[in-house]
Amino acid sequence: MVEKLALVGIGKIARDQHLPAIAANPDWELAATVSRNASVEGIENFTTIEAMLAARPDISTVSLAIPPQPRFAYAQAALAAGKNVMLEKPPGQSLAEVHALEELAREKGVSIYATWHSREADCVPDSKAWLADKTIKRLAITWKEDVRRWHPGQDWVFEPGGLGVFDPGINALSIMTEILPWPVHVASAVLEFPENRDTPIAADIVFTNPDGAEMTATFDWRQEGPQTWDIDIETDGGRLKLSSGGATLEIDGQTVKKGSDHEYANLYKRMASLIQSGKSDVDLSPMVHVSDAFTLGKRKTVDAFHF
């Protein structure tokens, strides 16, 4: 059965990832969009989700590709109307918001999916399998990119609820929580806040873990030139390196796999499966680490940032 879907938010991520993934999947029909400032040619557009829900009762699923700050109200409206809901990462501004949405979905008997697109990178399953029987000695995440390239002029990322550098950093955390053979938690953090901004532009995190391994993460939004999305893991059975956000896998310095970009295609495939089975998927472990980093983090003020 083809599910009719409404895509909320027609910005860069929607055009680059969501729209191609929906178009390529026979389980989905893009039936409507919701955006105040943009539209998709040939698709009915609404400026509010309330108008869309009232006019299109035939739509079964709503995918939210909007910033986290307004997302709760949109998701709540869709769930209350009996629609399945797909949440772009991070799934909300806070853990409590997402718990409330999950409970509402349960009450309404619909599916909700908190997506983590980086978990769908091609080399993530291979890394998880390779690590399963090994003792980890050291893990170092280095996630450095240029905020001006990926969020040009988007002040919402530096506003409360926007997460700052954890907007990309949570991608690394979603991979880490997927591939490790045991759970970890934040032990300490240092968060660098520009003097004119409300969320951090950089962060250094230390984790504690059952093996007593040295585990750190460094996030930075000020890197120009080549971008860095790496996870290095030293074990008793060799060294693993995931690079390019999980698309390339090296073992002991040798490239063993270079994957293709199927992340969002996999997300929409998973959403269709959840609906067909009447299930939900709301794993908040990456977001727990972000929340703990804000709770435990020492604040450091750095130079002002301007787009």
Score class of each variant (00 low, 15 high):
Leu139Asn: 00
Gln254Asn: 14
Pro194Val: 07
His306Asn: 12
Asp281Trp: 03
Gln154Arg: 12
Phe72Gly: 00
Asn171Ile: 03
Ile66Arg: 00
Ala172Phe: 00
Val186Pro: 04
Ala23Ile: 13
Arg15Lys: 15
Trp116Arg: 01
Ala78Asp: 02
Lys258Phe: 09
Gly246Asp: 01
Pro183Gly: 09
Gln227Phe: 04
Met287Lys: 05
Pro125Cys: 11
Asp281Gly: 04
Met52Asp: 04
Ser111Pro: 02
Trp150Gly: 03
Asp220His: 04
Lys300Ile: 14
Leu64Ile: 15
Pro26Trp: 09
Glu224Asp: 11
Glu195Pro: 03
Gly92Cys: 08
Asp303Ser: 12
Leu267Asp: 06
Asn266Ile: 10
Pro152Phe: 07
Leu173Phe: 14
Arg222Gln: 12
Asp204Asn: 09
Asp122Ser: 14
Val34Met: 05
Ser127Gln: 04
Leu173Cys: 02
Leu53Lys: 03
Pro200Met: 08
His151Glu: 08
Ala77Ser: 13
Asp155Gly: 13
Lys144Ser: 11
Lys144Arg: 06
His185Tyr: 12
Ala121Arg: 02
Ala272Phe: 02
Val157Pro: 00
Ala140Val: 14
Lys257Gln: 11
Tyr268Lys: 05
Gln254Ala: 10
Lys257Ser: 14
Trp156Glu: 06
Ile201His: 02
Thr142Lys: 03
Lys83Ile: 10
Ile179Gly: 03
Pro210Trp: 11
Cys123Arg: 01
Lys83Ala: 10
Tyr113Lys: 01
Lys137Leu: 13
Glu120Asp: 10
Asn196Gly: 09
Val290Met: 08
Ile13Ser: 09
